[in-house]
Each structure stands twice: as C-alpha cells, then as structure tokens.
Amino acid sequence: MSTPTGLGATPPEIPADELAVASSVPESQGRLIWRRFVGNKVAVASVIILLLIILFSFSAIGIGPIPGWWQYGYKALNPQVNGGNPTLSLVPQFLGGNGISLGEHPFGQDRIGKDYFAMTMRGIQNSALVMVVLGLIATVVGVVVGAIAGYYRGTVDAILMRVTDVFIVIPALVIGSVVGHWFGALGAPVLAIMLGFFSWMGIARLVRGEFLSLREREFVEAARVAGASDMRIIFKHILPNAMGVVIVSATLIMASAILLETALSYLGYGIRSPDVSLGLLISSNQSAFQTRPWLFWWPGAFIVSLALLVNFVGDGLRDAFDPRHRRFKLSKMRETRPEPEPELETQP
C-alpha cells in the first residue's frame, strides 16, 4: 500500500523511534506515540481511506432528512435499467471501454428495482454507526468496571470479575442474537447501544490487569499522600497510563463490531428491512447469486474493506503504543549462528 497524501513530503526517512532517541529535546509520551503511528504508512493510509469511505457514504445519500448528492434514495422503487446490471464503468475510452462514468445505477438494481448504490451506501452508514456507538459504549463500560475492580481489589474485584465471567460465558454471537431479536426492530442506534452493553468484558479484564500493576507504583502513592480522592487517582493518574491498552482494544472491538452487526443482520436478528445493512443485503440476495452476482459482491467487498481497514488501524496503534515486539529480528541472529554439528542423540 502506498501513502496517498501529504506524508510523502516528509524528507528524511528515519524511523520514528530512532529519531526520538537521537533528538536532545525530551519529548512527551504522547508525541512519541503519535510519531510512531504516523511513521506507519499502512495504518495512516487505512485511517484516511476509512474516513473517506464513511464520508462518501454520508455525503452520497445524506443523513436523515438532509439529502445527499445522489439522485436516488435507498427505499425508492425505480424502473429497471439495463436489466438491473451495474452501469458503473471504469475502463477509459482509449483502452476500448465506455469511459469513466457512473451511469444510471452504478451498482445495479435489485429484483424490485431499488438503486443498489444507495442501498450499499446506507449499509455502510449503518455499519459505521454500529461500529462507533458499540465501540464507545463497550469501552466506557469496560474501562469503568475494570478500573474499579483493579483499583479497589478484594471483594469488589471478586464480585465484578465474577459478573464479567457470567457475561463472558455466553458466546458473542449467541448473546448478540438474543439482543438483536429483542431490539433489532427498533433501529440501528438502539441495536448498537444494546449490543455495546454486552461487549465490554474483554476490555474490562485488560484494564483490570493494567490497574492491578499500576496502582502499586510510586506516583499513585504520591498522589494519595497529596490527598487526591480515589476517583481522581483512578481517572487522572492511573487511567492515562493505561490508555494504550484501552485505545488498542477499543479499535479491535470496533472491527469485530462490524462483523457482529453484519452477521446478526444476515441471521435476521440485526437491522431489519426497509432499513439496510450490508449483512442483510447478502442474506436477502443469496439465492440470486447465479443470476445477479453483483448484488452479492458490492456489500461483501465493503464489509471486508471496512473491517480490514479498522484492523490495520488497530495494528498500527498497537505498534505505536508497544513497539517492543518489533525490535527482535531473527535474521540478525542467524548470521552469527555456527554451522550445524552432529546431533547429540547419535553419539554413543
């Protein structure tokens, strides 16, 4: 993947961490991490493409009552054009194609003539919405539970962790199906909020682990001696130091949120018709795979790209916060390795 914008302008290609070590002016932890993240081209490109896709989908068909630039809505029935085939053409004329143009229905039409471009854009909007809302709620709940359990330890910790165990026993898809069956008909925002309340367990365990070790450090002791309240120590002193874990796992929750929503919609427990979800599009057009394959490819391609981009961002964040596991290089050890000698087992 190449860097799309601006970044290529930075002249010297020095790895971010070396640069930080070399410079004599001390840098804040946040700037260090930011530099490491910006140095990771794949992650930065993923952020940009992800934002572009989401912006594109919202500008195309608008939000709620505000109309977008695209002429058709995702609910309106239209007369069939070209047998419902996609009219998008990307091959320029001088290569023997029909020129670059969108045409009447760039992604084609479904069986009853709805514009598939508008439907796909609506599906992306819903996926983005579920991703952000579910991620935020799960993160907030998980951080609060984990922070309290890890900070107070003892009985509070035992009770909260047993509650976490109760929630974690039920596989995500099972509890998601039940929640979706209950709240799916109320629309995507409600579904996302409710699913968020059943996705916080992983992050709570991680945050608890961080807090258990951080609370023994001297700066916590110092804050307590200075008379800081428990809430202040938790949120002002310890939490900023645990932010790496929180941000990385929040991103990974968001990636799995996209997959969870599409899977639930595929099973019929997620977003319901006439609203549109990428998973619902695949499930309702699965039988037409042989005759109208494009009804399957567009939503499929966007699910995979959204989830892939978010995963790349999460990986970039992990490397930025915890560059340790990048340092070791096996190839360097290999160069100094001696030639193999006779094996021990064969010696008498």
Binding site: A255, L259, T262, A263, Y266, G279, I282, S283, Q286, F289, Q290, F296, G300, I303, V304, L306, A307, L308, V310, N311, F312, D315
Partner: peptide, 17 residues
C-alpha cells in the same frame, strides 16, 4: 488480517457457490 476481517457467512456462501 484478511481472514480476521472476513465474515463467516461470506466465506460459507462463497465456498458453497
């Protein structure tokens, strides 16, 4: 990474078809 981002139902439908 690609497999992480691939929904199970998509794989299943593609394999079937």
């Amino acid at each position: 990474f690609f497999l992480y981002s691939l929904p199970a139902f998509l794989v299943a439908v593609l394999l079937k078809e």
